[in-house]
C-alpha cells in the first residue's frame, strides 16, 4: 500500500525540492537584505540559538505534528478535511469553557477533562461532515470548510460573550483559565509545555494503526480507490465517518493544548494557521503518519527562521510566509516527485 514505488527516488526528490527551496531562500536573503551575512545567520541560527528559541520551535513543531497527523488521517482515507482551522479553534473554546466551570481542586484531572472536551468538540465538528457525507453524499471538502468558516466567528462571539469574556482587556479574549488548569511550562518563558509532548506518542500510535493493522489497511484502501473498497465489502460509511471524526478530534486536541499550555485564555486568532499548516504538513508527508514529525519540524523551523530574520535584519514581514510557500511549491510539485531525479 505504499504510495511510493521507489522510496529512494521519492526521498531524493523530497531532498532535492528542499535544497531548491533553501537555495531560493538564501538567494532572496542575500539579494533583499541590507546585511546578507547577518540575515543568513539569523535564518539558520536564530531558531536554535537559545533555550527560548528551542522551546518555541519544539512547541510549534509538535503542534503542527498533531494537526498534520489529523490532516494525514483524513487524506489517507480519501477524505479532504479543510476545516482544521475551525476544529482547532472550537477545541480551544471547549477546553477553556470547561476549565471555567470545573472546581479548581480537580487539578490534573481537570486538565485531562478539558483536553478531552477539546477533542470531543473537534471530533463532533469533523464527524458532522463525515455524517453529512454518508447520509447526503455532501462533499466533505466543502462541508468541512464551511463548517469551519462558520465556527470561527461563532467562537469569536462566545469568547467575549457573557460568562467567558474578559472584563477588561485590550485584546479580544476570554477570561483566563484558573491557574490550577495551566499545563506546566518547559524552557520558560518559551511557549513549550509538558502537554504538547503527548504529540509524539500519538503520532507513533497512529502511524502503527494506519500502516500495520487491518483497520489501517481498510482506511488506506478507501483512500486509494473508494469503489474498490465498497466492492470488497468494506463498510464505506464507517470508513468515511471515522477518519473525519478522528481528524477533527486531533485538531481539537491541538487547540486545547494551545489554550491550556501556552495562551491560558482564548485569544482571538490564537490558532492562526495551525489548521492550514497541518494540511501543508500532510502534503509534505504525503499522508504518511511516520513522515509527519520531520515534515512538521521542517515547517516549524522555516517559520521560526523567517521570524528570526524579520526581528534581526529589518526584513519584509511576509518573508516567512514566502519561504513556506517556496517549500510547499517545490515539495508538492508532483512532476518533480514522480521522476527519479
Amino acid at each position: 500500500m505504499n504510495r511510493r514505488t521507489n522510496p529512494l527516488a521519492s526521498g531524493i526528490g523530497t531532498l532535492v525540492a528542499l535544497g531548491l527551496a533553501l537555495g531560493l531562500a538564501v538567494v532572496l536573503l542575500a539579494v533583499l537584505s541590507p546585511n546578507p551575512a547577518g540575515a543568513l545567520r539569523a535564518f539558520f541560527w536564530g531558531p536554535v540559538s537559545s533555550g527560548l528559541a528551542w522551546g518555541n520551535l519544539l512547541n510549534q513543531a509538535l503542534l503542527l505534528s498533531l494537526t498534520g497527523l489529523a490532516a494525514s488521517l483524513a487524506f489517507g482515507a480519501g477524505a479532504f478535511n479543510l476545516g482544521g482551522e475551525g476544529q482547532t479553534y472550537t477545541g480551544g473554546l471547549a477546553a477553556l469553557a470547561l476549565t471555567l466551570v470545573l472546581p479548581v481542586a480537580w487539578g490534573w484531572g481537570g486538565i485531562l477533562a478539558a483536553l478531552l472536551a477539546g477533542v470531543m468538540a473537534g471530533a463532533l465538528l469533523g464527524g458532522l461532515s463525515g455524517w453529512l457525507k454518508v447520509r447526503f453524499e455532501a462533499d466533505e471538502m466543502i462541508t468541512t470548510f464551511l463548517l469551519s468558516a462558520s465556527a470561527v466567528p461563532f467562537v469569536n462571539a462566545v469568547m467575549t460573550g457573557p460568562g467567558i469574556g474578559a472584563a477588561q482587556s485590550m485584546l479580544i479574549q476570554s477570561r483566563p483559565a484558573p491557574e490550577a488548569f495551566w499545563i506546566p511550562g518547559l524552557l520558560a518563558p518559551s511557549n513549550l509545555h509538558v502537554g504538547i509532548l503527548v504529540a509524539v506518542p500519538i503520532v507513533v500510535v497512529f502511524a502503527v494503526l494506519v500502516n500495520h493493522t487491518p483497520w489501517g489497511y481498510r482506511l488506506r484502501l478507501m483512500g486509494r480507490n473508494r469503489d474498490f473498497a465498497r466492492y470488497a465489502g468494506i463498510s464505506t460509511g464507517i470508513y468515511a465517518l471515522v477518519p473525519l471524526g478522528l481528524s477533527g478530534g486531533l485538531h481539537g486536541l491541538a487547540g486545547a493544548l494551545g489554550v491550556l499550555g501556552t495562551q491560558h485564555s482564548l485569544v482571538q486568532g490564537f490558532s492562526a494557521g495551525w489548521g492550514w499548516n497541518g494540511i501543508a504538513v500532510a502534503l509534505i508527508a504525503r499522508s504518511n503518519p511516520w513522515a509527519v514529525l520531520p515534515a512538521a519540524a521542517l515547517l516549524a523551523f522555516l517559520d521560526q527562521a523567517g521570524r528570526s530574520v524579520v526581528l534581526q535584519g529589518q526584513f519584509p514581514f511576509q518573508l516567512s510566509a514566502l519561504f513556506q510557500a517556496c517549500i510547499l511549491f517545490f515539495i508538492t510539485a508532483r512532476r518533480l516527485h514522480g521522476r527519479p531525479l
Partner: peptide
C-alpha cells in the same frame, strides 16, 4: 481497474 482493484497499490495489498 476502477472497481476490481486498487491500481496504484501493491499486488499484495
Amino acid at each position: 481497474l476502477g472497481r476490481g482493484s486498487s491500481p496504484h497499490s501493491q499486488l499484495a495489498s
